[in-house]
């Protein structure tokens, strides 16, 4: 058998063995067996001395080819076996994706807080400062400074919780109007809202003795009812969506003149008429008006130079419309099954 034939036979045998190897360990052994220093290749090369000198380069070339072929095959087989092993491992490595996850336990904010924040955000973007006032206030700020003298029939509009003859739980956030004006130099322009809890002695399915309002006040030069309408329209569209329409209805508040109630087109039925809007297509959401000259004067503002508008809205009312809540009592029962629905 010629040297060449031996080399080719070795190649065929080695390739067959490599092909048959089932693990990377076997491949390693075959590598040592065929390509190692003590392997058959070395044995064959020992016979090189008997090969005529002119044939030696040719044989050398064949040796290199066989070596390369075997090394390449070894490499390919190693890669294939590794891929197969990984595949087999992954095939057995499985989780039940339908088991619940380890969810970080997040809590929930109360819907009144969420609504309050949204109202504040909208008005702050329009340049309104947010000012807080005391919940326990005196007769002067809650009533008198708002053009509601003692024994005025309009005091019937609000059932007041009294603490003494003078101190009371504020019935409205409007008291912050006078407080704010009196805290400033006369005739300083004002743009503010004041959110907070208010109290009225009324407790049934549709009245809570504590609830939340947001008061608004703008005092400047030439602030008109049209400006009020524009501001509130912007607010309502931000709050309830661009399709919402607003309308003003004449009404009465002692501290505004002219006064109005503000209705929005029903957010439930879009104005077609439903139970929520009592088939009118409109929902009353806030009261407003031009600041009464007496209110400005009592707080040291010159009503011939300055005027303004004021408004007040019920936060629960807005939250109910926003979230589709049909029972006012839910807000203060604090059933966690209720609270946990909001985020």
């Amino acid at each position: 058998m010629s040297m060449k034939e031996m080399l080719l036979e070795l190649r065929e045998k080695a390739l067959a063995d490599l092909e048959a190897a089932a693990s990377s360990q076997e491949l390693q052994e075959l590598k040592v067996k065929y390509l190692g220093r003590k392997g058959p290749m070395t044995e064959i090369l020992r016979g090189m001395g008997k090969v005529p000198a002119e044939e030696r380069p040719k044989i050398g070339e064949i040796v290199n080819q066989v070596k390369q072929t075997l090394e390449q095959c070894l490499k390919d087989r190693t890669e294939i076996l590794r891929a197969e092993a990984l595949k087999a491992k992954i095939a057995n490595d499985k989780v039940d994706i339908t088991l619940p996850g380890r969810k970080p336990a997040g809590g929930h904010l109360h819907p009144i807080t969420l609504t309050n924040r949204e109202i504040k955000k909208i008005f702050m973007h329009m340049g309104f400062d947010v000012i807080e006032g005391p919940e326990i206030d005196n007769d002067y700020f809650n009533f008198e400074a708002l053009n509601l003298p003692k024994d005025h029939p309009a005091r019937d509009m609000q059932d007041t919780f009294y603490i003494t003859d003078n101190f009371l739980l504020r019935t409205q956030t409007s008291g912050v109007q006078a407080r704010t004006m009196q805290s400033k130099e006369p005739n300083t322009p004002i743009r503010m809202i004041s959110p907070g809890a208010v109290y009225r002695n009324d407790y049934d399915a549709t009245h809570s003795p504590m609830f939340h309002q947001v008061e608004g006040l703008v005092v400047d030069k030439n602030i008109s009812l049209a400006d009020l309408k524009g501001t509130l329209e912007t607010f309502c569209k931000e709050m309830f969506g661009n399709d919402v329409k607003i309308r003003l209805r004449p009404s009465y508040f002692p501290f505004t003149e002219p006064s109005c109630e503000v209705d929005i087109s029903c957010v439930i039925c879009g104005g077609k008429g439903c139970n929520v809007c009592k088939h009118s297509g409109w929902l009353e959401i806030l009261g407003a008006g031009e600041v009464h000259p007496n209110v400005l004067e009592m707080s040291g503002y010159d009503s011939s130079k300055m005027n303004g508008y004021a408004f007040g809205m019920g936060v629960e009312r807005i939250a109910m419309l926003k979230y589709g809540i049909d029972d006012l009592r839910l807000f203060f029962e604090n059933d966690l099954r209720f609270i946990r629905q909001f985020r």
């Binding site: 973007h125 809202i193 400047d220």
Partner: peptide
């Protein structure tokens, strides 16, 4: 009454 926006200086409101 046509809606109109009050002609007031642009600013962001501040909170307590």
């Amino acid at each position: 009454i046509e809606s109109h926006n009050p002609e007031l200086a642009l600013r962001q409101g501040k909170e307590d």
